[in-house]
Design a protein around this nucleic acid. Structure first.
Length: 488
RNA sequence: GGCCUCAUCGUCUAACGGUUAGGACAGCAGGUUCUCAUCCUGUAAAUCGGGGUUCGAUUCCCCGUGGGGUCACCA
């Protein structure tokens, strides 16, 4: 049997962090067993329809590397599908759901309900007042067939409800074990709405079966509706898949992760300069741990070590400070080309750096970045030197004359150096350090004023790096300006 | 409130029923470095409570307590 997992988002226009983890775990599980990762669009709520949401969803999944094996794909920006079980968008499968809903009607496993929303709301509020469980009272189940026929002839709108039998329902969750619930606790779930669209419950069961899904891995918020689904599988005579419900990702106050308390959209984090790799790594470890004392894992390693039985049962707080740390790790260690691809959009366009300059700036500044967004603020120094007081040029253990002396000498060294010198950061360091060594100077006496002359800042990248990025003429120009500052 | 469910440092987590309860992030204190960022060292910090079972419970069972989820013609 081929393992098939699925990720069925409702297209709301953004990808929730929790959904990212759900998608990732589905992906990891499928890949680990050589299975199929399926993407399905669950858009049966037309009131929440968002134009272009599917496209942006697929793009986001693409950016974080969660490419589905089956389902909707974007080819040159145009939506199409791959796989033999389509369509993979539920709004294109209405006939299928209706067919099964009517089959259940004929079987006597479901019934029509003509109750208005108003009546249902009243019923619910009365039940709440009386502190009773809120359940449909099955008024329409008691309608005789001539009455039903009469209402149908009158074109009265109706929904189709699942008739929950007596007894209890037990199912196995791969993470939590056996769970049993009394059927009397379950409402006669609406399967087909008045508009002919299915509810989640019907659509998910029908689709998962028809599409050959073997493992359902999703958030814990679904656990209470599993019994309905199990009952549906039973009356539809479908074999049961495996269920695994993931613990929730939490706000710092331990409630379910929500807007209000920070960003929840993957797109927001990408926009802020968090790397896809970091996001994936971070989210993977929210609720799962391969074994022990490691934090950084490649996707390949995650696939190898993924194990549903090692997924935690309790919720995990989304801790941005740890994400920041991890993002920093990835920025510092990512392959330069990949990093540049990700970082380029974050350079301030007004600064107008050449690609080569960007490469050097990134090589230098990546040591100091928490997110790529920091790039826009931290790089202006390479474009123009900020204003600064001449006192800043003086090393704490020296004086103006000392600074002047060294700046002049280094200016001369740079003047005499050829272009090759400025191409090689290590060579720059070697030559300037030699100047310090042979004259028995202290590092600070030379490097502090040089660094300030080049950056205009008390805190910046090192002087060798600055010379390398700024190049010959700009470096010399800045040193000359500093010299003037002291003299005048 | 009913039902379901969960429970190790502030946070993410590790620990065949036997460990001085480990690691990471954040914190604090030092150190390296021209500054920043790194890096290094050290430090503080947890098994929710009560009963069992056992020679021995973080680990198994029960009861509390606390948290969370869910109770729509939303997914």
């Amino acid at each position: 049997m081929i393992i098939k997992t699925r990720f069925p988002p409702s297209p709301t226009g953004y990808l929730h962090i929790g959904s990212l983890r759900t998608a990732l775990y589905n992906y990891l599980f499928a890949k680990k067993y050589g299975g199929i990762f399926l993407l399905r669009i669950e858009d049966t709520d037309r009131e929440r329809y968002v134009e272009g949401a599917v496209e942006s969803l697929i793009q986001t999944l693409d950016r974080v590397g969660l490419i589905c094996d089956e389902g909707p794909v974007l080819v040159n920006g145009v939506l199409s599908e791959k796989g033999d079980y389509g369509p993979y968008t539920q709004s294109n499968r209405l006939d299928t759901y209706q067919k099964y809903a009517h089959q259940l009607l004929e079987q006597g496993s479901a019934y029509r309900c003509f109750c208005s929303k108003e009546r249902l709301e009243k019923l619910r509020s009365d039940q709440q007042l009386a502190k009773l469980p809120t359940k449909y009272d099955r008024a329409c189940l008691r309608l005789d067939s001539t009455e039903v026929q009469h209402r149908l002839n009158n074109n009265e709108p109706f929904v189709i409800r699942l008739l929950i039998p007596e007894g209890e329902t037990t199912f196995k969750d791969e993470i939590r074990g056996m769970i049993t619930i009394q059927n009397s606790e379950i409402d006669d779930q609406i399967l087909l709405k008045t508009d002919g669209f299915p509810t989640y419950h019907l659509a998910v069961v029908v689709d998962d079966h028809l599409m050959g899904v073997t493992h359902i891995i999703r958030g814990e918020e679904w656990i209470s509706s599993v019994p309905k689904h199990v009952l549906l599988y039973h009356v539809l005579n479908f074999p049961l898949p495996s269920f695994a419900h993931l613990p929730l990702i939490l706000n710092p106050d331990k409630s379910k992760l929500s807007k209000r308390q920070g960003d929840v959209a993957v797109e927001d984090y990408l926009k802020k300069g968090y790397l896809p790799e970091a996001l994936i790594n971070f989210v993977a470890l929210l609720g799962f741990n391969p074994s022990g004392d490691r934090e950084i894992y490649t996707v390949k390693e995650l696939i190898e070590s993924f194990d549903l039985t090692r997924v935690n049962k309790s919720g995990a707080v989304f801790d941005i400070t740890k994400l920041n740390w991890m993002n920093k790790q990835y920025i510092r260690s990512l392959e330069p080309k990949r990093l540049m691809d990700l970082a380029e959009p974050f350079f301030n366009e007004e600064l107008d750096f050449s690609f080569e300059q960007k490469e050097r700036i990134l090589a230098v500044e990546k040591e100091r970045l928490t997110t790529l967004q920091d790039l826009s603020q931290q790089t202006s120094v390479y474009s123009a030197i900020p204003l600064f007081e001449k006192n800043l040029l003086v090393w704490k253990k020296a004086d103006e004359q000392d600074a002047l002396h060294h700046l002049k000498n280094i200016e001369q060294i740079l003047q005499d150096a050829d272009e090759k010198f400025f191409m090689d950061q290590l060579l720059i360091e070697e030559i300037l350090k030699k100047y310090i060594e042979i004259n028995h100077y202290q590092n600070g006496n030379v490097l502090w004023p040089l660094r300030v002359a080049l950056s205009g800042q008390a805190q910046s990248a090192g002087p060798f790096e600055l010379v390398w990025v700024l190049g010959k003429s700009e470096s010399i120009k800045r040193i000359q300006q500093a010299i003037q500052k002291i003299i005048s």
